[in-house]
Structure formats: structure tokens, C-alpha cells
């Protein structure tokens, strides 16, 4: 039950945002994500913005390639240190 899609906030009126995904727009409530601003990319589920999307993917992916190519472990190293 977790279909959610990324979309860009185009406009905000009160706590209702207009979000856009490749030309398609819809209203999404910001009740669960009051900090979101116009221009943010957010994850939308069941008509609500659930989280701001942070583009960390580039560095993560680079680290992954490096590790697979025989480099030292860097991926998710912090979780290992914290021992969770």
C-alpha cells in the first residue's frame, strides 16, 4: 500500500500545494510536510506530500561503483560505526 511518486511543488495556497509530475498536476496536502516550499521535489502518497526529496544519489552511486570496483568500503559506513 505504498505507491508514492516524486513531484515538484509549483504553488502553495494555505496548506495545499499544486504538484507536477512530467506535465501532470494535482493538488497535494502539506499537512504532513509543513516545511515544504515552492520548488521542492516531494514524495506524494494518497494526496499528501510525505517527504522532501534530497538529491544525494550522485555521491552515493559513485561510492557504490568505487566499492564494486575493489575500492575500500565507504557505502553506509556510518550505520556500521553506529552498530545499528
Amino acid at each position: 500500500m505504498c505507491l508514492a511518486v516524486p513531484a515538484k511543488i509549483m504553488d502553495i495556497q494555505d496548506s495545499l500545494a499544486t504538484v507536477e509530475l512530467r506535465g501532470v498536476t494535482r493538488e497535494a496536502s502539506l499537512m504532513l510536510l509543513p516545511e515544504a516550499k515552492v520548488g521542492d521535489y516531494v514524495l506524494v502518497h494518497a494526496g499528501f506530500a510525505m517527504q522532501i526529496i534530497e538529491e544525494r544519489d550522485m555521491e552515493e552511486t559513485e561510492a557504490l561503483w568505487a566499492e564494486m570496483n575493489g575500492g575500500p568500503r565507504t557505502v553506509n559506513l556510518e550505520t556500521v560505526r553506529q552498530g545499528v
Binding site: 505507491l3 511518486v5 509530475l21 512530467r22 506535465g23 501532470v24 494535482r26 506524494v44
Partner: peptide, 12 residues
Amino acid sequence: RPEVESVCELLG
């Protein structure tokens, strides 16, 4: 079309 793909993603 990308817009049709969007509709598909949104509505499953």
C-alpha cells in the same frame, strides 16, 4: 507519452 506515464505512476 511521459504525461501518460505520470498518470500511470500516480494511479497505479
